[in-house]
Computed example of a mutant assay.
Amino acid sequence: MSGANRQPQGEPVLEIRDLNVNYGLGEEGVHAVRDVNLTLHRGEVLGLAGESGSGKSTLAYGMLRLLPPPGVITGGSVLYHPRDGEPVDLLTLSTSRLRGFRWSEIAIVFQGAMNSLNPVHTVATQLCDVIAAHEPRTTRSARVARAKDLLKLVGINSDRLGSYPHQLSGGMRQRVMIAMALALEPRVVVMDEPTTALDVVMQRQILAQLVELRERIGFSVLFITHDLSLLVEFSDRIAIMYGGRIVESAPAAELYRQSLHPYSDGLLHSFPALHGPRRELTGIPGSPPDLRAMPTGCPFHPRCPRAFEPCDDQMPALTPQGDRDREVACWLHSERSLRSEHRSRTELAE
């Protein structure tokens, strides 16, 4: 594993606290995101992984208030820490303030982004429109110059400004979308499975370039994907999501060396290693849970090879493991902690 350069944790730039998102209201509502807590630090690449349907994209769209109907936020807060001033809860901003806030402070590269460009407008027009919408006082020549700089930033020759999307390769269209996300120099970039439709070589070229841009410019990244192998290589920290909840959070290198949750371990053994000896691919039996009829207790227990008595009727809490930078929601480790605590108390009493 090559691994990203471990970034020291700075101050938080984005804090998601007890976020809950439903599709629909009342008894018919589907709980897609349940009590999620995540912190993104300055200059960090935070990976969010899980199978399709685990709630990753819903979390991203919910925190930015981009949920399509019938999605609704039912609780929690999303605190953004600006360069100056007090934290701002994105969920309480007015529509006009939120519109100005997007792209300038937090930008998003959507799933299937390479097909998001308007086919009847040139790259120059689309990049300049983003700048003009948020900085209307800039001149046309200044916007074009900025667009040229943005293309160079993502490794595309500026003579491609006059090209239409169909004249670009899939990788180039993807990089144009990343350039668009960086147009207003946001502090946070959310990337929702932006490389899914690209081949493996192009995926790694784009992600390596993204890490280089992060180190040069200093923005933070929330990178969402079902491909844990990508996150292991390019993330500083990884959070694993299952059934709408975070089940494990750890530094990327530590998660790769020793995952604590059986679901994380299953994901890690679902892809071949690019380096080192061959290993057996085992995968995860069964299917992700139906969010309309979640199992009791730990949502992973019907598929878990290590499930035991409390797993089927008691929900494990997300608890720290050793230090505040690693957490897991699993009775295997909660029970161990309880036994250790009981033993310590007994020794003190004696």
Rank of each mutant, 00 (worst) to 15 (best):
G55D: 04
E51D: 07
A60G: 03
E341Y: 06
A142L: 11
A133K: 01
S163W: 00
C304N: 10
A4D: 08
S116G: 10
A124G: 01
P320Y: 07
M202F: 09
P82I: 07
L168Q: 04
I238V: 14
M63Q: 10
Q9R: 09
A4W: 05
R65S: 12
A273D: 13
D192S: 10
A293Q: 14
P289Y: 03
L38M: 06
M202Q: 02
D325R: 05
V144C: 00
R216E: 15
S249G: 02
N118F: 02
R245F: 06
L184W: 06
G112K: 00
L151T: 15
G75P: 03
Q9N: 05
V221Y: 10
C304I: 11
F300M: 01
P316L: 03
G10T: 05
A307I: 14
T346P: 03
G55V: 06
P82V: 04
I224S: 11
L348V: 13
E27K: 05
V144A: 02
V33K: 11
G286F: 11
I16N: 02
M294F: 07
E335D: 03
P68K: 02
P8D: 02
S220R: 12
G50R: 11
M191T: 08
H269Y: 10
H166E: 02
I224H: 11
L48N: 09
V109G: 02
A179P: 15
L150F: 07
G322S: 12
R303T: 13
K148F: 09
V72P: 00
F101Q: 04
P316C: 10
V328H: 15
P305N: 13
V30T: 14
E212L: 14
I206A: 12
I224M: 00
Y263M: 14
H226R: 14
P288F: 02
K152F: 14
S334N: 13
N115E: 08
R345E: 13
I156C: 07
A307K: 08
L79G: 15
V109P: 01
S334M: 05
N118K: 06
P289K: 05
R187K: 14
P136M: 14
P295Q: 08
S249L: 15
Q111K: 07
E105C: 09
S141V: 13
L207R: 09
C330E: 11
G75N: 14
V72K: 07
V176T: 04
D84C: 02
V109H: 02
V21G: 10
E280P: 00
D84Y: 05
V176D: 11
E215S: 06
S249F: 09
A239I: 01
I131V: 15
G85H: 12
L25H: 06
L38H: 04
L117K: 13
P272R: 11
R83I: 04
G43R: 03
D313I: 01
I240R: 14
R336Q: 13
A60F: 08
D199Y: 10
E105L: 00
F219N: 09
Q111A: 12
R343D: 04
M202A: 15
L267A: 12
A113P: 00
A113Y: 01
H342G: 00
T74G: 11
V247Y: 15
S287F: 12
S340T: 11
V30N: 05
V201Y: 04
V36L: 09
A124H: 11
E27T: 12
E193H: 06
L318C: 10
A49Y: 01
S235M: 06
S169M: 01
E327V: 15
